[in-house]
Amino acid sequence: MRPVLLPASLEELWPLMRDHPGAAFMAGGSDLLVRLRQGLVDPPAIIGLEGIAELGLVHDEAPGWLFLGAGASHTALLEHSLVQRRLPLLAQALAVLGSPLVRNQGTLGGNLGTASPAGDTLSPLYALEAQVELRSATGSRRLAIADFILGPGRTALQAGEIIYGAWVPLAQDWSLAHFEKVGLRQALAIAVVSLAALISLDDGGVVREARLALGSVGPTVVRPRQAEQALLGRPLDAASLKAAARLVRQEVSPIDDPRASAHYRRQVAGNLLLRLARPAD
C-alpha cells in the first residue's frame, strides 16, 4: 500500500511535495498507472492533482494568450468553446486522441509531462509556439515548449515543480489550421506520424507564414524549418508542397519500431504536406 494524496489547492500541494520526496504525480493516471502495472515505477507515494481546481482552468484573461490548465482533461479541452473557436488545430488533434474514455481520463499536463514524441497534443502546441508554465512553492517560470521537452520522456521539470499549464499565443488568425494523425487504426492509436500545420496566406494565396510540426518522427516533435522557409512566398500548390515535402523528409529523424519503419515515417512525413494543397482560384 502506498499513500494517495489528493490536495485541494496548490497551498496544500507544496508541503505534501516536501514531505513525500519521490512521490509520483498523477493527473489522469492513464500513463502513471499503466507504468505502475508494468513495474516500471514504484513510487513511495502518489500525489493526485485532480482536486486542484485552478489546474483545470481554461481562460483568455491575459490579452493575446489562451491559458490551458495542466489538469484539464482532453475532453474538457475539446469541448471548451475557447479551444474550439481559437485553437481549431488543437481541437482537431484532441478529437482523435485515444478514445473518449482515454480523453476523459488523460490531461494536457500528462501529455506534456510524458513527453512522448507521439503525444497527440504536442505537435499542435509546437506549431502554436506554446509556452509551458511550471510552478513551485517558490515561484513560476515559463519555457517555450521546445525548451521544456528535452527528449522522449525527458523534460525540463525540476524537483519541486509541477506543470501548471500551457500558454498559447493568439497572435494571428491562420488561413489554414490542419492536423492529421496517421495511426494503425482509427481510435486508440498511437501516431505513426502526425502533422500539425498552420499556414497564413496573403490575399493572393501566397504563403506569408508557415509553421509545421511533426510528431513521431524524431526524439521530440520536429519543426522542419527549411520546409517552412521553402513555402514562404509561394502559393500553396502541389509543386511548392512537393518541394517542401522533400525537405521535410531530410529534416526528420525517425526510427524503426514495431508500428512502422523509419523509411515509411520519413516518406509519409513528407506526403502529409500534400494534403495542404489548395485548389487554385
Binding site: A260, V268, G270, L274
Partner: peptide
Amino acid sequence: FTPERVLMALQEDGKGAG
C-alpha cells in the same frame, strides 16, 4: 495490409502521389 505495405506497393509502381 498495413499502411506501410500498401504505400510501398504504390511507390514500387511509381504511382504514389508523394
